[in-house]
Design a protein around this nucleic acid. Structure first.
Lengths: 206, 206
DNA sequence: GCAAGTTTTTATACATGTAAGAAAAATAGC
DNA sequence: GCTATTTTTCTTACATGTATAAAAACTTGC
């Protein structure tokens, strides 16, 4: 058994039956071994999932044509990461990992940092800018996938509905105004708008 | 037994011994009942955690003095939410919840949306702006707490170190340039800077 | 006051991640 | 070739969330 074999088999299970079916016992029998043997190649299940994500990134994160304009390059590179990760529905469990630091993602990080520097930021501020973009991107994916998953589980979310129904227009006029439209509004995909705003703000000289 | 008692007892356990010690069995014996009885007051453990977070928010999320200037009001309101949540170390498990929608947080959401509207955004764009701020805020907290937790667990993070050590300066010059400083740079707390940038960008008329 | 129905609680059972340590296999030194 | 040591694997066991279904307690209509 090897780490590669573990990850490869795990990937097969996840691809075929979804991340829910990936259990250490299942993985072990699939390999023809016992659960605890896995733990010599992988610290715990979380590490296995991180490896799976890296593996996924390495396979699907293809470098796009990047615009020459540095600001737009930042946007396109971030959007590419976002698109790849958002298509990966079992990601939430992993995304709390500090950073997406698989080798294959580094090129995108480089593009973002470099774009920011070319726009006039110091390297330090560029790294901070990249982090802000990563926070925004990871947050969007985590929040949105959680919402989708809950909706898929048939959760009518009566709690939210009740909270909004109880809004006093005298006290919270703006929320009362949009209460009806809250669900559809927040369901819209506005990742790109927010990303553009963030990048604009990072590059604006205050 | 009542929902309130369940939450109150859960809170006591979490406050006293941390969220790790909160198990359904422990909670049940503390109440003097059986684990499965809890499930008539709470759908599952996740819902219990969300209730705990709401309870926590209701107790600690005090309305600050807000500046008159709407843009600054948005920043201060968002920062207040961030500060309260960031101090809550067991939050990551819950924050994947779609939205922070406890009644006590609504006032802050109102301030943000209202501030954005007063700066000239339509209500729709203001809601989207609020969501962008929420993505950024939730992402920052999730990523940062995960990192802190890992560090606390004594994880030397050799993986990241290795990735950075392997960077080819010819291919990824910017990253090579900051590789040494990456850990301290990303450990800095730049939430406010990023928030200001995001708000600026949201309000800039492109 | 009591039968019918509803809500709440209990008992039992299962699948899961993984700790602890024994066993086995591979490797190194002579 | 054989022993010592290190690496890998297996056995057993436990704590956890929670499904299922039976029991108990409570509520309601008369």
């Amino acid at each position: 058994m090897s780490r590669e074999e573990v990850v490869k088999t795990a990937r097969r299970i996840v691809d075929a039956e979804g991340v829910d079916r990936l259990t250490m016992r299942r993985l072990a029998t699939e390999i023809g071994s016992t659960p605890m043997a896995l733990y010599h190649h992988v610290r715990d299940k979380e590490e296995l999932l991180v490896l799976l994500l890296d593996d996924y990134a390495a396979r699907t994160l293809h470098r796009p044509e990047l615009p020459a304009q540095p600001r737009e390059r930042v946007v396109v590179a971030a959007a590419a990461i976002h698109e790849a990760l958002a298509a990966c529905p079992w990601i939430v469990e992993v995304l709390t990992a500090d950073d997406l630091m698989s080798t294959s993602a580094l090129w995108f990080v480089e593009q973002i940092v470099d774009g920011l520097v070319e726009c006039g930021l110091t390297p330090e501020r560029a790294v901070h800018g990249y982090r802000a973009i990563w926070y925004y991107t990871a947050g969007e994916i985590v929040v949105r996938t959680a919402a989708t998953r809950r909706r898929a589980a048939g959760d009518r979310d009566t709690y939210r509905e009740r909270v909004f129904a109880d809004i006093d227009p005298g006290e919270l006029p703006r929320l009362a105004e949009v209460a009806e439209r809250w669900a559809p509004l927040t369901a819209e995909n506005t990742y790109l708008d927010g990303l553009r705003a963030l990048v604009d703000g990072l590059l604006a000289t205050r």
